[in-house]
Design a protein around this nucleic acid. Structure first.
Length: 158
DNA sequence: GCCAACGTTGGC
DNA sequence: GCCAACGTTGGC
C-alpha cells in the first residue's frame, strides 16, 4: 500500500492550481534535512500527496497529488543565480534531492487547518503538533482519507 | 561538542 | 507585521 505525504507550498509562490496548469513539477528548494530525507529515502512513485497551502488565509489542504519520479538532485543547488544555490554542494556529491509531483485532483473545497484542529480524530496528525515547521511530512493513510472526506462535507461555520 | 546568535517558517 | 518555535552556523 502506497503511503501518503503532506507537502506544503505557499500558494503565492506555487499553488495547487499552478500544479494542475503545469501538469508536473520538481519539488525544488527544500533545504531541510528531514524533509529531504523523506524525499530521498522514503517516497515511492505513486505515493499520495496532500498538497497543503501554507502562509496564506486560510491555510489548508487544497488538492491531491502524487509522487511521480525517483529521487534525483535538485538542480537549483548548482545554479549560482538561484536563491537555492548551495556552494557546498557539487554534482559529484549533491546535498539536496527532490522528486517530481503530478496533480491528481483538486479537493471540492479547501480543508482548513482550523477545521483539522477541530477534528478530534486527527489529533495525532504531525501537521497539528505545536511548533511543527516541517514542509514535508508523512500522514497516516486513514488520516489522509479522513481529510479528503471532510472536503466532501459542507464547510463548518466560520 | 556546547551553545549563543542568527535566520526561517508559518500561524495568527 | 509580530513572534514563537525551531534549525543551522560558527566561535570557542
Amino acid at each position: 500500500m502506497a503511503r501518503t505525504w503532506l507537502m506544503k507550498s505557499e500558494p503565492d509562490v506555487y499553488s495547487y492550481e499552478d500544479l494542475e496548469r503545469e501538469g508536473r513539477t520538481l519539488w525544488d528548494g527544500i533545504r531541510n534535512y528531514q524533509a529531504r530525507n523523506f524525499m530521498r529515502d522514503e517516497m515511492r512513485v505513486g505515493d499520495r500527496v496532500l498538497f497543503y497551502h501554507s502562509n496564506c488565509e486560510p491555510p489548508g489542504v487544497a488538492g491531491i497529488a502524487e509522487v511521480a519520479s525517483e529521487p534525483y538532485p535538485d538542480p537549483t543547488q548548482f545554479d549560482p543565480k538561484s536563491k537555492y544555490f548551495d556552494e557546498k554542494s557539487s554534482e559529484e556529491n549533491p546535498r539536496w534531492m527532490l522528486v517530481d509531483v503530478t496533480p491528481v485532483r483538486a479537493l471540492p473545497r479547501l480543508v482548513s487547518l482550523a477545521e483539522m484542529r477541530e477534528e478530534a480524530r486527527l489529533a495525532d496528525l504531525p501537521l497539528l503538533r505545536k511548533g511543527n515547521r516541517l514542509s514535508i511530512m508523512p500522514v497516516e493513510n486513514a488520516d489522509a482519507d479522513r481529510i479528503i472526506a471532510m472536503a466532501d462535507q459542507p464547510a463548518p461555520d466560520a
